[in-house]
Amino acid sequence: MEIPFTVSERPDTGLTNPKFGIWLFLASEVMLFGSLFSSYIILRTGSLDWPVQSDELNITIGAVNTAILIASSLTMVLSWTALKEKQFKRFKLFIGLTILFAVLFLVLKIWLEYIPKIHHGHILSTNTFFAMYYLMTGLHALHILGGVVVMIFFWGPGSKMWQTNPDQFVNRIEVVGLYWHFVDLVWIFLFPTLYLL
């Protein structure tokens, strides 16, 4: 038995199940990160000794990481269009680049930001700013990690589906792409909030 509208679009809504599902998931994620921003505002405005954030964090690394994520978002959308044009090799190239950028982001985040900070003794219990910093960026980094795992799957073993069910494969890449752009979008707001203001 097949579930209807897994691959094809339902005529009256114009959506497939997975695409509708991922948008609902993203709506939930909006509220998830929204709670973080809400908490951040309350904790920061309620604090008298909030450190000057740009003194504590390295704006250059933050900006470079922003650029990396934007580039990965671009390669993600290009990989999807390549697949729609049935250019499988180009798809593999672009999603490979996306994975590369994502890993680069995590490497910069962990080796150049988390580890030196922990060496300096700046951890969650130092003050509320660092607690908030680790929580917000950490949760975001977990989302990146999840995305990397899924993209590696679709770059490697998952891409066999291109031979058996190309339509569904294109849909799956679109869904992964939506998730990935959302993770990028969250960072676009995290970067000025934590590094610049």
């Binding site: 809504t13 114009g14 959506l15 909006v30 509220m31 939506l178 752009h181 959302f182 979008l185």
Partner: peptide, 29 residues
């Protein structure tokens, strides 16, 4: 990002309605 990379600008009405309400609740939150 939302309009072009995520194609919200040409997205179906149902999704836009849901996101519209999500944003209202986000502001409430």
């Amino acid at each position: 990002v939302a309009s072009f990379f995520m194609h919200l600008i040409t997205e179906k009405k149902l999704i836009l309605v849901i996101l519209f309400f999500t944003v209202i609740f986000l502001f409430a939150l």
